[in-house]
Amino acid sequence: EPLWIRPDAPSRCTWQLGRPASESPHHHTAPAKSPKILPDILKKIGDTPMVRINKIGKKFGLKCELLAKCEFFNAGGSVKDRISLRMIEDAERDGTLKPGDTIIEPTSGNTGIGLALAAAVRGYRCIIVMPEKMSSEKVDVLRALGAEIVRTPTNARFDSPESHVGVAWRLKNEIPNSHILDQYRNASNPLAHYDTTADEILQQCDGKLDMLVASVGTGGTITGIARKLKEKCPGCRIIGVDPEGSILAEPEELNQTEQTTYEVEGIGYDFIPTVLDRTVVDKWFKSNDEEAFTFARMLIAQEGLLCGGSAGSTVAVAVKAAQELQEGQRCVVILPDSVRNYMTKFLSDRWMLQKGFLKEEDLTEKKPWWWHLRVQELGLSAPLTVLPTITCGHTIEILREKGFDQAPVVDEAGVILGMVTLGNMLSSLLAGKVQPSDQVGKVIYKQFKQIRLTDTLGRLSHILEMDHFALVVHEQIQYHSTGKSSQRQMVFGVVTAIDLLNFVAAQERDQK
């Protein structure tokens, strides 16, 4: 057995438009009618409502009807409940999964919650491996369901041993009777949507819809739904939504950006999952974080739909894509998950301010006199920076000697690579993860907040409520011999709460 199987392995699926269902090699399930009293909570997966979006479509000038398939009504709160249950049931049916076995899954959280929910009911041990950027709410729900959680670096490539995929496979090879159901490759993922989600949409719309818009992560949702719609409703256009920084969209030119990270969760990847059939997507749109969270908040405030950030991405694209539809036509959007997962993220004004998705003037509360002053007023001194090749031991000596707790790590040209902190280095040394002679590049981390000289002290204040420091950066445009230009970030300084307090105190003292 291989040590790991690539999540982007070539698909062996034989589905073709027009091929009889009787030739399918898979076990198919028909939607079942729910009894009045459910035998367990797993029976509350599927049969989610279709809700008309009344205000947002009109606000953006849509002539067509805009409908939302509300997947956050599933038992675990997301569309991923469907595939989690289906993968477990299919693994039980073919004898792969037996009582007492362990389920391991690399996930952005929602599939993990679905699997942990099913594992709690069915009696399996469950280990979820997820990147650090995923919300604390997801972690809390997983723990409450009895799952064990392993976190991995957000910026690790999918084929790196440190990625959530790599760590999951390492655990599988170490733990007896453990299984990775593997949402990236498992046919049960798109089949769950082909058999149930798509049929529900067709039934709820009486077979009449002209466009379907869905955000894409593993691709199982859009693949399964689109294949069924292509068979039953061939005139329906399928629109895929991919965040900026991901590479799922086609044509490839759409993916060209210097951005590699994004805040919206559960969609987009740096590889093409095996289950994603991009041939059934008629057109791709890219979405960005700001519009995703703005539209998610709009869905909550104006439509009462308590959905997550990827739902915002989907609707932001839908109001663009559906401009081509006329009166009497219908566009369906998939709202994948609930706001429950993001209470401390985009639902929080403070978080939105820190990330730059909300401006101070958007909030009406009274601010102190210094709130709208610029960061450049602080008069920061030149920063202490270190090269990635310097040793951890030497870096600790320098920081202690100069009285700093942290320093930016830059390359020879001064471009920011990340940050090192005294606390992080000492804990890594004590844990045996690094040696004093190791290069400081081994303990770089990139989960820090950046701020510009033109940003306000109010925004800085919000950042420092949650973080010990902020890195002050400025952009530099560099022209190359080819005539092309590129933008790079340079370090201007490091600012802490002490710097802000000293500035405010000094100004008030001078005024007296």
Rank of each mutant, 00 (worst) to 15 (best):
I239C: 02
G240R: 02
V241K: 04
S246V: 02
A249P: 07
E250R: 02
P251S: 10
E252L: 11
E252A: 12
L254S: 05
N255Y: 07
N255D: 02
T257G: 09
T257C: 08
Q259D: 02
Y262N: 02
Y262R: 02
V264R: 02
V264G: 02
V264C: 08
V264I: 11
D270I: 05
F271Y: 05
V275H: 02
V275L: 02
L276Y: 07
D277I: 07
R278G: 07
R278Y: 06
T279V: 09
V280D: 13
D282N: 13
K283H: 02
K286R: 02
S287D: 02
S287Y: 02
E291V: 12
A292W: 04
F293T: 02
F293H: 06
T294L: 06
T294Y: 13
M298Y: 14
A301I: 10
E303S: 08
G304N: 02
G304A: 05
G304E: 15
L305K: 05
L306V: 02
G309I: 02
A311Y: 15
G312C: 15
S313L: 02
V315I: 08
A318Y: 07
V319D: 02
K320T: 13
A321M: 09
E324G: 10
Q329L: 09
C331G: 07
L335K: 02
P336D: 15
P336V: 05
P336A: 04
D337C: 12
R340D: 07
R340T: 05
N341T: 02
W351A: 02
M352Y: 08
Q354S: 15
K355Y: 09
F357T: 02
E360N: 10
L363S: 15
E365C: 11
W369M: 15
W370R: 14
V375S: 09
Q376P: 08
E377R: 06
L378S: 08
L378W: 05
V386T: 15
V386Y: 10
L387T: 14
P388S: 14
T389I: 14
T389D: 13
T391M: 12
C392H: 04
C392D: 09
G393N: 02
H394I: 02
H394F: 11
H394S: 02
E397L: 11
I398F: 12
R400F: 08
E401R: 02
E401W: 06
E401C: 12
K402A: 05
F404E: 02
D405V: 02
Q406G: 14
A407F: 11
A407H: 04
P408Y: 02
V409Q: 09
V409M: 13
V410F: 10
V410C: 12
V410K: 02
V410Q: 14
D411A: 13
A413F: 12
A413S: 13
I416G: 10
L417S: 12
M419Y: 14
V420M: 15
L422M: 15
N424S: 02
N424I: 09
M425I: 14
M425G: 09
L426C: 13
S428Q: 15
L429M: 13
L429E: 02
G432R: 10
K433R: 10
S437Q: 15
Q439I: 07
Q439N: 13
V440P: 10
V440A: 08
V443T: 15
V443A: 14
I444K: 06
K446C: 12
F448A: 02
Q450L: 11
R452N: 13
L453S: 05
L453H: 02
T454I: 08
D455S: 14
L457S: 02
L457I: 12
L460F: 14
L460G: 02
S461D: 06
H462Y: 13
I463S: 09
D467L: 08
D467R: 07
D467P: 08
F469I: 08
V472L: 14
E475P: 02
I477R: 10
I477S: 08
Q478V: 06
Q478D: 04
Y479N: 11
H480M: 08
S481D: 09
G483Q: 11
G483S: 12
S486I: 12
S486A: 07
R488I: 15
R488Y: 14
Q489N: 02
Q489F: 14
V491G: 11
G493F: 14
V494C: 15
T496W: 02
T496A: 13
T496M: 13
L500V: 12
L501E: 02
F503L: 13
V504F: 12
V504S: 08
A505H: 02
A506V: 04
E508F: 13
R509G: 14
R509C: 13
R509S: 09
